[in-house]
Each structure stands twice: as C-alpha cells, then as structure tokens.
C-alpha cells in the first residue's frame, strides 16, 4: 500500500513540475480566456437594452428577462461557466489515450504494476491544481471587476456547498467521460473525429454556448436527461439560484450517478480493450 501511494505521489510531483515550467504563458492564457466574455457582455447588453425599451413601450416581454435571466444573470452565467469548464474540461485526454493505444505505448501499463486510468487521473489532478494555483489571481481579478453583474450577491451557504461539490464532481465526470471516448480507440484506431463530434455536442449540450433554459421545450427536456449539462450548466445554474431546493439535490444525485456510471464504463472498456489489444513491434 505504502509503495502504491509512493508511486502516485511521484507521478503527482512530476506532473506538477511539468506544469510550472510555463507559468507566465499560463497566466496570460487565462486572462485571454475572458476576452470572448467581453464581447458577450456587449452583445447581451445591446439585446437587453432593446428588450427593456420595448418593455417601457408596453410591448411583449413584460419583465425584461430572457428565459428568466436578467442581463446581470446572463453575464454572470457566462463567467460561471468558465469556472465550471476550468474543472470539467480535459484538453488532450481523449487524444492522449487514443495515441497511446495506437502507438503501442499503452503496453507499459500492461507490464508495469501501474493502473493507466489511475495514473492519468493523478496527472490531471496535478495539472488542475497547478492551474488553479496560477489562475486564481486572474479569475479573482475578472470576477471582482464584474461583481456588479452578480445581482443577488453570494448565494446562501448550503447552495455554495452544492456548487463546490458539483464542480468537483464535474471534474471526475469530465475525466471519465473523455477517458471512455479515448478508450474506444481499442476498437477504432482513429478517434479524432469522434473527439471532434464530442467537442461539438459538448459545446451546445453542456450549456457552454448559452443557458440551457433558452432551448425550446422538447429539446430542452431531452438535453436535461443527458450527462453533458453537469459539465458547465449545472454548477452555474445552482450558483445563480436557477435550480434550488429539492430539485438541486436531485440534480446533484443524478450527477453522482452519471459519474459512477462513467467510472464503471471506463473500467469495463479498459478490461475489454486490453483483452482485445495486440501489440506489435518494438
């Protein structure tokens, strides 16, 4: 057991150091990430402006909201989604796994007493931790500048707890979901296109593009059943009080269920895949 912990610890340290090499680039990159939000702020400003003018003239849309979102909520939503994505997005994971399978590098996990998924997870945790360490400053700065968009201020403590929990779960969900797609590489050697389709679906269905309440009724109901919404929409909606009370706890339970489902699925895919795998050459 102690040896095992030592192994993980070493992986962890290596990954941390790997990441700290490019910290300057990193901080700049994080700030750049908010640039699209800037255009979003102006776009929605222009839209809500027209709505409130129409409202003053007694036209449709009596309360100046879009699907229950005030202007501030809308901007706050986009900001919070960036936080969700900071937890749930796994750049290069699918590709990495598929590449290892294709190139045969995966063999090292078959002969060493190290679990591939565990190893990758440790690396991700390390990378994410370094990311938060460096990104907290730019994030805090941007959120402080944008504090007026958070119309209702901080949510109550129980909501905060659910918010943080859902973020942590979204990390695990994102990891195992993308790992599953990568592991499909045991069956199809080329999963780049699959990853592409996933990215596309994810952008729309996770609520990264816009709040899911904006989707028309039947599609919205369907999207609510999918796991994607926990990768971006759910934590943000909880924070903004769009999902509250019992509904919030049910949502959290469903998120846990999805996470467990993908953990098990990743295990199954790994075991089946390894059985199927044949390594050639070097």
């Amino acid at each position: 057991m102690a040896a095992r912990v030592m192994t993980w610890w070493t992986f962890f340290q290596i990954s941390i150091n790997e990441r700290l090499v490019y910290r300057g680039d990193f901080m700049l990159g994080t700030l750049m990430r908010f640039l699209p939000t800037l255009t979003q702020i102006f776009l929605w400003w222009a839209i809500y402006d027209v709505i409130s003018t129409n409202m003053a003239q007694g036209n449709e849309n009596p309360n100046g909201e879009i699907a229950g979102y005030r202007y501030g909520d809308m901007v706050a939503y986009y900001l919070l989604v960036i936080v969700s994505r900071a937890f749930s997005s796994m750049p290069g994971l699918t590709r990495g796994i598929a590449d290892q399978i294709r190139s045969g590098e995966v063999k090292k996990f078959l002969i060493q007493p190290v679990d591939m998924l565990g190893c990758l997870l440790t690396q991700r945790v390390a990378h994410k931790l370094v990311y938060y360490l460096i990104a907290t400053l730019p994030f805090a700065l941007v959120f402080w500048i944008c504090r007026s968009f958070f119309v209702d201020g901080w949510p109550p403590i129980d909501v905060m707890v659910v918010f943080v929990t859902s973020l942590l779960l979204s990390f695990l969900l994102g990891f195992f979901l993308e790992a599953c797609i990568g592991l499909v590489g045991f069956w199809f050697l080329e999963v780049t296109s699959l990853g592409f389709i996933y990215m596309l679906l994810n952008f729309l269905l996770s609520g990264h593009m816009f709040p899911l309440e904006l989707l028309p009724g039947s599609i919205g109901a369907f999207v609510n059943f999918l796991p994607f919404k926990y990768l971006a929409y759910f934590p943000a909606a909880v924070f903004l009080g769009k999902i509250r009370g019992t509904e919030m706890y049910i949502g959290l339970a469903v998120e846990i269920a999805w996470t467990l489902f993908f953990i098990v699925l990743a295990r199954v895919l790994w075991h089946r895949g390894v059985k199927r795998y044949s390594g050639f050459g070097g």
Binding site: L43, A46, I47, Y48, D49, V50, I51, T53, N54, N61, I66, A67
Partner: peptide, 9 residues
C-alpha cells in the same frame, strides 16, 4: 426575445 440587436441600430 428581441426585435433587434442594439437600440436603433
């Protein structure tokens, strides 16, 4: 939800 993007634009 809106008739135009930007008032009077």
């Amino acid at each position: 939800h809106t008739s135009s993007i930007g008032r009077g634009s």
